[in-house]
Amino acid sequence: MTGLRTTALALTVAVATAVSAGSAFAADPLRIGTEGAYPPFNMVDENGNLHGFDIDIANALCAEMERECTFVKQDWDGIIPGLLAGKYDAIVASMSITEERKQAVDFTDKYWTNKLQFIAPEEVDLDISPEGMAGMTVGAQRATISAQWVEENMPDVEIKLYDTQENAYLDLEAGRIDAVIADMLVNYEWLQSEAGAGFEFKGEPVFENDLIGIAVRKGEDALREDLNAALTAIVEDGTYAEINAKYFPFSIY
């Protein structure tokens, strides 16, 4: 059974990569695209090596699927175009499953659950209703659901779009923007850091049950099913919980 599936997968990968990568063998590593600028989910250390929750999950999935994996670092706003262009085969970069993205790519099951929440300086009393935020400037990363959420729900807010989440935090520190909206856990991580001292969460999460999945090119069902099977396996055998505990003292599944 596994043998058959591996062959089918190899064929699919071969067909898919033939266009861009040339020769393709069953032993070809699975190429995973990630951003590397989204702590604690994916980031680079001083030596330029990728690490973080996404990387650990991807490695666990690859071990489960018994496939070799390589990582490709790609800026966020080009990450879907890069997948479609065949630069890598799957995106493990804490990407929210949205209807718009589903037009362009297919998603696996969720591998964590996100919420969106505002952060702002402690001394500021922020009312995060659309009326309370009117006239304020909010920072978010370009091409994220946070940016989209503000555009759709807070028409009177001026939104500033950043290439990376880190740059949005820099401008929050500098006082150029009144608040940042981002994935709650990314904000959580930043608030724990030295730079985040003096800032806090404002109000309740504005959007819950934002499911994070792995994106693959449309039609690559074999790869998607393999990833789903591996995902179920690592959740059941406790590998997932182990990785989760490395980053957060509560479950994010």
Binding site: D77, G78, I80, P81, L84, E100, R101, Q103, A104, G139, R142, A143, A147, Q148, K160, L161, Y162, D171
Partner: peptide
């Protein structure tokens, strides 16, 4: 964060995925 010609193009692509 400026929406110059390139910034605007990138923001549009964030929605339509048609680079």
């Amino acid at each position: 964060t400026l929406l110059d010609l390139t910034g605007m193009a990138r923001t549009i692509i964030a929605r339509n995925y048609m680079p």
